[in-house]
Amino acid sequence: MGKSNKPEDKRFRIAHNEAIIGVVLAIINFLWWYGFAYELGNKPPDEYTYILGFPAWFFWSCIVGFFVMVGLVIFVVKYLLTDVPLDDDGGEEQR
């Protein structure tokens, strides 16, 4: 504590990046969900097309959208997240 100009714990920089990834995922999730639901759903129901038994807007927004998010989360976990130790020994420096 106190006056110091030491660089931040390296693990925190990783954590900050991962939080930004979380925000980006949520934005993609929202846009996909909103876009398909209200683009394809915004017409009289008798003009709806059906895919695998579901109205197209629902199929793309909720069902495909869900699988897309699962795919993205798997991608993020496999390629973008970093393993770090959580206890203090793993930090670059002790405070």
Binding site: D9, N29, W33, F58, L86
Partner: peptide, 30 residues
């Protein structure tokens, strides 16, 4: 179906909480 659409907003909880609070929260609380 409109309510199912609404309910699907909850998919975000699956990844959002853990990614945002993330490792920093675990490190700091420890």
């Amino acid at each position: 179906l409109g309510w199912v659409l609404l309910a699907m907003t909850q998919v975000a909880t699956g990844y959002f909480v853990l990614l945002i609070l993330g490792k920093k929260f675990a490190i700091v609380t420890l």
